[in-house]
């Protein structure tokens, strides 16, 4: 890693040059190289933490993913299918189930669910409204169609509402939330602390590289190495994921969850590319400064 600038050698001033030629340092390039490596490492860890913070730990990201993959309409269709099948086993016509599902505002339901999840208040779907509405709809159906009271019992209607509610919860809830919940609540604060520490370390290393190097071009060179490395490491992860196509091969039970999973994780990995782009931009900036500084140093010597 020794990349000392070798001074121009003028044979006519050989004797004079011989006494003023600076010694080539071996230790310094290694030390600065190591610092550059450490800066890249810290930036990589910081990237991972920030992606997690901006995606897995963000309710807005989840809501955005749902909106972009058409999650709400898929859930609606799946709930319609589920209630229709329940209707076949319980005497409710298809039209009843279809019309009832249309009355549900899935966007609001999911938003409430996610917001309450991320705020720590609950990881469960609020089924109170659904239960009441469904029961009310059934009672109205019985009344409107003059259904003979002998054709039904209170316990059977309660069973029916309970089954329908189970289907509703199954459709609306996002299963892996129950596991994420533990990690989000426990790690959220820790993640923030980790990120702050990493930022501080990165700044310290950066400042050390910058201010302890006597030559400006070297400062920028080592910073450039670090930023290029960070860009590469940030870009490798999503590249491997995209090339393997593993996200689309997930084996999930319903189309809505599948689409949400694919959209969510595809978007999440895209964040790595955004950070790679930022690091690449910084690398270009530092490279330009390096060239300018190097030109001045070479000219001076």
């Amino acid at each position: 890693m020794s990349d000392e600038v070798e001074l121009h050698f003028d044979p006519e001033k050989k004797h004079e040059h011989h006494h003023s030629r600076p010694k080539r340092s071996v230790v310094k390039p290694i030390v600065y190289g190591f610092m550059s490596f450490m800066l890249a490492f810290v930036l990589f860890l910081l990237t991972v933490c920030m992606v997690i913070r901006l995606t897995l730990f963000s309710s807005d990201f989840m809501i955005g993913s749902m909106a972009s993959c058409g999650y709400y309409s898929m859930v609606k269709d799946e709930l319609k299918d589920g209630l229709t099948a329940l209707g076949h086993a319980s005497g409710l016509p298809d039209s009843f189930c279809a019309e009832f599902v249309e009355t549900i505002d899935f966007r609001q339901v999911e938003m409430n669910y996610i917001v309450s999840f991320y705020s720590g208040s609950s990881t469960l779907v609020d089924d109170t409204n659904f239960k009441q509405s469904f029961r009310a709809a059934i009672d109205k159906y019985i009344e409107d169609n003059n259904i003979d009271k002998s054709k039904t019992t209170e316990s059977s209607l309660v069973n029916l509402v309970d089954k329908a509610t189970d289907i509703y919860i199954d459709n609306v809830s996002i299963p892996f939330f129950s596991i994420l919940a533990n990690y989000i609540y426990k790690l959220s604060g820790t993640l923030n602390v980790i990120m702050m520490v990493l930022v501080v370390i990165a700044v310290i290393i950066g400042l050390l590289i910058y201010f302890t190097n006597e030559y400006k071009h070297r400062r920028h060179r080592y910073l450039c190495y670090a930023f290029i490395t960070s860009a590469i490491t940030a870009a490798i992860i999503p590249t491997i994921v995209y090339v393997s196509g593993i996200v689309a091969k997930v084996n999930l039970g319903t189309r809505s969850i599948y689409n949400l999973f694919v959209t969510y994780f595809s978007s999440m990995f895209r964040y790595f590319y955004y950070f790679a782009g930022i690091y690449l931009f910084l690398a270009i900036i530092t490279f330009v400064f390096f060239r300018i500084a190097y030109g001045k140093t070479a000219k001076h010597h």
Partner: peptide
């Protein structure tokens, strides 16, 4: 069965990451 509905797509909830554990 409950004549079919509980094995339908709507009723089968995906464990997802939960099942990893």
């Amino acid at each position: 069965k409950d004549t079919g509905f509980e094995t339908g797509a709507a009723a089968v909830t995906v464990a997802g990451l939960g099942a990893l554990l």
